[in-house]
Design a binder for these strands. Structure first.
Lengths: 355, 355
DNA sequence: CTGAAAGCGCTAACAC
DNA sequence: GTGTTAGCGCTTTCAG
């Protein structure tokens, strides 16, 4: 079982930096030349004994650069701690692609997951040299303004946006899974399965699944993977408990009600980390110890969860990166494909062997 | 009493647009010239019969532009729907000011308030032509990397960052209130007062205040204003109920516990909208009708609250704008000042006359 | 007070 | 393969 840890500073750091989503580049800080000015592509060129054009090509993975040259350039980049200027990139790029981000009706934009995803996305888009324009969207959930490409967030059954955009022959990418359209999603089925298998391995047989509306593709698939794993192990799969609003508070209320009605699962799989937080609180309030009396597994691996939660991790930065890949493919009119982001279990302190 | 409403589409809109924080510019969408290309400063210049230099000066409020010329330029700008390109601005601006945003130890970055504030801030910074760099911050809460200017978020008593930065003679701006340093904050005292006065006016006398840790300046001041208003009206001010974690879930648990222990306030003033959400849920679960049995007032006026909450509104966009003003002042070495953002009450359906 | 011109740092033709 | 060069849209000297 995977026990991937975040870099230690991630959960304890109390400071932030603007554009901290960019931290994935792991640049050693925006360095400067000895003379104090910002280090530019010219410095790299000089250091690698090539022209700036070559540096640019190497940097952007353009074809037609000798492997050795490329290596030399990359070495210089690393050594100097060169960090390309996004504004300059954006400005020089001749493709004012207007990307419109549309969230599903009723979808909350201020939830942590979406916030992080958007940060990574904007960052990646900007450093990719895209021109991102403001594209308002109508109250009917359908994008009104023109965009060259739409990003649909919050996949769910009967999403009106998909048919709408297909009819208009406008390219779009679904962040979520759906066959036949360009889409990216975490492998939700696999995630559900991982959670179940982990708990089964620990001896749990009475496992509650607490989730959001099953019209959401993500919740549906997580439940499906979870159910399949239990079925495979010949363990009884009860009905999942549904909270229409997948928040910590709603999960708390739902789980508390269940506990008060006498339910005593030995483990619970919450469909999001936030919901897991609610479960944990409800368990504590019911006098249950975690993981002694109850094991809890979440989904997402969000920062700032507040306790030591075993969870199914999906890498949001990677999700954004794949989204941008698909975006390029869409612009290049490449064949439609559905991408999956692998997920894996992160074992922490909220799960233990069944007593 | 003020009854400011958000633009109607704000709460019902289900679509988003990238960089939607920019919507405050209320630009009529990125327009294009008849020939289809983006409209630039050159188009404006041609249309106003001046040079691009003059347009730039007029646009940025630089001195030395004839009033008539300025008017002509602004008219052309409006007519063409010109929307300056941020990347170009950023690139040409010769001030690579590195702004480091530091959040207080323990402060959650993924809370809606901070997310919105940061969006507005980044947007304003970018269109102001600032060069925003990544500035990692140490686990001790003190900014480690170099920045030309620090933005401190989450003001609280004994904040180590302030003394630290002052000692280093580095300019900084506190988002929160504190005498003697450059700071911006909502008028929290006044906000607490408005909430109290509203409830008093409705006949409430037994009002509970549910808040976060009072070491936080915002919570402390809100409680202070609230208490002062009650005292002024000769109404008994009980002790506020404190949730260390100012979340909806924590508020729910706290308020529920209070109700179960027999407390029966006729109104509650929650120090944030999120906490108000928790209160509302607890009241509902206790069989209390809102506003019939219980009036609830929040603070912030966040979108996506989920119910019709009377609240004290602070304009986050304006807060960001003032922050940027202070930033300019700091760079210009102007005298230190503490700015206050006016707040006002937004009366909605969660409050009513005491029965 | 206003115009002309020189870049900001980068990418993408276009040459060699 | 690699170097050279012309801009991207804007702000800002520097002349007039």
């Amino acid at each position: 079982m995977t026990n991937t840890r975040r870099p230690p500073n991630r959960s304890t750091s109390t400071g932030a930096a603007i554009a901290d989503a960019a931290s994935e580049h792991a640049s050693p800080g925006a360095r400067t030349t000895p003379s104090g000015s910002r280090i530019t592509i010219r410095d790299v060129a000089r250091s690698a004994h090539v022209s700036i054009g070559t540096v640019s090509r190497a940097l952007n993975g353009r074809p037609g650069v000798h492997p050795d040259t490329r290596r030399r350039v990359m070495a210089a980049v690393a050594e100097l701690g060169f960090d390309p200027d996004q504004a300059a990139r954006e400005l020089s790029n001749r493709r004012p692609v207007r990307v419109g981000l549309s969230v599903a009706r009723g979808f909350r934009r201020l939830i942590p997951f979406f916030v992080l995803f958007k940060e990574h996305l904007l960052d990646g888009l900007a450093s990719g040299g895209f021109r991102v324009h403001d594209v308002p969207t109508g109250a009917d959930g359908l994008p009104t303004a023109e965009a060259d490409l739409y990003l649909l967030f919050g996949a769910h059954a009967d999403d009106p946006r998909i048919a709408h955009l297909e009819a208009q022959e406008r390219p779009f990418i679904l962040v979520g899974h759906r066959k036949g359209v360009r889409s990216v999603a975490a492998d939700d089925v696999q995630g559900g399965r991982l959670a179940a298998e982990h708990l089964l391995r620990l001896g749990h047989r009475d496992i509650l699944h607490l989730t959001g509306a099953l019209s959401s593709q993500a919740f549906f698939d997580r439940a499906r993977g979870f159910g399949a794993a239990l079925a495979d192990a010949d363990v009884d799969v009860g009905k999942p408990s549904i909270c229409e609003d997948p928040s910590a508070l709603a999960a708390y209320r739902a789980f508390r009600t269940l506990l008060e009605s006498g339910a005593r699962p030995t483990a619970v799989f919450a469909a999001t980390d936030e919901m897991a937080v609610g479960c944990q609180a409800a368990a504590v309030d019911a006098g249950l110890a975690i993981p002694g009396d109850l094991s809890v597994v979440g989904f997402d691996d969000m920062p700032e969860v507040g306790f030591d939660l075993t969870t199914v991790r999906q890498d949001i930065g990677e999700l954004a990166r794949i989204t941008i890949d698909l975006l390029h493919e869409a612009l290049a009119d490449a064949p439609v494909r559905s991408a999956f982001l692998p997920v894996h279990l992160v074992t922490r302190g909220s799960t233990a062997e069944r007593r």
